[in-house]
Amino acid sequence: MAYFLQQLINGIALGSIYGLIAIGYTMVYGIIGMINFAHGDIFMVGAFIALIAFLALMALGVTMIPLALLIVLVVPWRSPPSGAGQWNASPTGRYANPFAWRLITAIGMSIVLQNFIQVAQGARVKPLQPVITGGYEFFKDGDFTVIISNIQILIVVTTLVLMTAFWLIISRTALGRAQRACEQDRLMAALSGVNVDRTISLTFVLGAALAAVAGLLYLLYYGVIDFFIGFVVGIKAFTAAVFGGIGSLPGAMLGGLVIGLIETFWSAYFTIEYKDVAAFSMLAIVLIFFPTGLLGRPEVEKV
């Protein structure tokens, strides 16, 4: 029971990270109907930027952890890091083009980002000593203690705050309105005076910023990163986005939690070697049997 509870907590923390990344997928797919293949790698670049920023701050003598954390949190936000690369090269202005073009361009971007980091920072695994330690004893059952660590609390709280902020952007601001308009009908939105290119670019950048924050949280949570983490994490987050229902923010969060929990419990109770098989099977099952997701709108084929 205690073990189960501990896994539940771990799963929720992991699922929050997936949820943050899933938002980027869900928004970009919702608006231009394209799987942004490079999104997982943006998450990876975000993690690297966070790592280097931490090291730089420590080298400069900023040892006050909360301050360092705050600065690092702001870095990915202010200079949309990899978002800008994505911004210029991604097929934003050319959404009218054939979709194979978009997919190949995005895969190309993904290869570029991965190998850029590999060349710039080396292929080896990068460890970071724990920045946030400690936690609360939550529950005791025999000799097994259920612990909620501070970092888990940070992850969940950050996710909740960002989710709320994001939801407000989508539902209350002009940008959000433009986004929803583009999602429905790009041509009509353009005719009504919405700057479609700009809206799509901003969607990319916002999604990228969230992925970068997720990268930071991942770094703090696991303490090691390498240039290849984006692929599998990206796949899982995409599964989460589809499972929750493409285009739905709460859906992305819900999907992220489900995927995080499944992964954690699979690793806890079944074979860890086939952990990724479980993730990929989930993806296939979700896409084949629940293509509209839990909170998505059903799509009717028009004849």
Binding site: F99, I235, Y274, V277, F280, S281, L283, L287, I288
Partner: peptide, 28 residues
């Protein structure tokens, strides 16, 4: 068989998943 109904990007992603599953099975 399982992907008969899928098209476009969804089809691409599911076939990707199948490819990875086969590789991981070969590995393990």
């Amino acid at each position: 068989f399982p992907v008969l109904r899928l098209r476009g990007d969804y089809l691409a992603i599911v076939t990707l998943a199948f490819g990875e599953i086969i590789r991981i099975v070969l590995l393990n």
